[in-house]
């Protein structure tokens, strides 16, 4: 390569937007109030593996918020954008990859879909390059309906009994249908999301006691998820139907298409280093 060409490339690189910031990845948990999501939700094994996929693996953030609340509430979306803004500012991030699991995908879709709700949202949207949504509950789950069902007392005060959080109420199927039809973008016949929303779908649960694959992320969870599959379509990860997971954005892959040994990813396994999921994401980003 001549010096002239090198100079040309150097000059182009110097003014390229790519040279002015950095790529970062944020791990955004699902339903629940997390204070140590790294250990309690994701595991270091998963996070440390995935973040090797970006040029500066130190540019990562594990979000800890109260996603027992409705997605728009300060403890949920407000907390999320506060932590993302701190991360963006501290690391100079201008290409943010958001990796979400389950209801975390809905919180992110809320922010992307409603930039005028809160003056903190636009900055996060501008920095976001894409979202990778692991088993997102985009169209809700019949299990949320089952937990919420009861008399009017249950509907209003079930949280006193330790369940029926607002996040669970929100993820009832007909509730998500309303939110998808009015406040959330990315589903059919709605405006597209302004950033790519790539979905990984979990399609089944293996709980055979003799199959070592059933033990990834905990055998006891697999057995329970097989029971809850009775409330769901034949294609489900034990908590969400495949149709719900793929309702918003575009499906990147359905577990067996790419996982090691063509293993399915249960809802517990889709946030763990099971069947090469971590390396699939690492190589994708």
């Amino acid at each position: 390569m001549t010096i002239y060409n090198k100079l040309l490339l150097l000059g182009l690189f110097a003014v390229s937007p790519l040279s002015q910031g950095a790529t970062g990845i944020a791990f955004i948990h699902g339903t629940g109030k997390q204070t140590n999501a790294l250990d309690d939700y994701w595991t270091s094994e998963f996070v440390d593996s995935v973040r090797q996929g970006i040029s500066s693996p130190a540019n990562y953030s594990v979000i800890n918020c109260d996603f027992d609340q409705y997605m728009w509430e300060e403890a949920a979306a407000g907390c999320l954008v506060n932590q993302l803004t701190t991360f963006i500012d501290a690391k100079g991030i201008d290409s943010l990859i958001m990796l979400t699991h389950s209801n975390g995908g809905n919180i992110v879709r809320w922010v992307l879909s409603n930039p005028t709700w809160d003056s903190r949202y636009p900055k996060v949207i501008a920095a976001t390059s894409r979202v990778i949504a692991l088993a997102p509950s985009s169209a809700g789950t019949p299990l949320a309906d089952a937990v919420n069902q009861g008399n009017s007392f249950e509907t209003s005060l079930g949280w006193l009994l330790g369940y029926n959080s607002n996040a669970v109420k929100q993820q009832q199927v007909s509730s998500m249908s309303y939110y998808n039809g009015t406040w959330l973008n990315g589903t059919a016949n709605r405006p597209a999301l302004s950033k790519p929303f790539e979905v990984v779908v979990g399609s089944d649960v293996d709980s055979a006691v003799w199959d070592s694959d059933s033990y990834c992320a905990g055998y006891q969870y697999q057995v329970a998820l097989e029971t809850t599959q009775n409330w769901l379509d034949d294609c489900s990860d034990g908590f969400l139907e495949c149709s719900s997971q793929g309702a918003a954005g575009t499906v990147w892959f359905t577990d067996k298409q790419l996982t090691q040994g063509q293993e399915p990813l249960s809802h517990q396994q889709s946030r763990r280093a099971c069947f090469n999921l971590d390396s699939l994401i690492r190589n994708h980003i």
């Binding site: 299990l143 079930g158 330790g162 369940y163 969870y221 329970a224 029971t227 809850t228 009775n230």
Partner: peptide
Amino acid sequence: ALASAGLSDDSSALT
């Protein structure tokens, strides 16, 4: 068992 799978309302089930 059901709570670990998201049905966290102290319910039990028969199939």
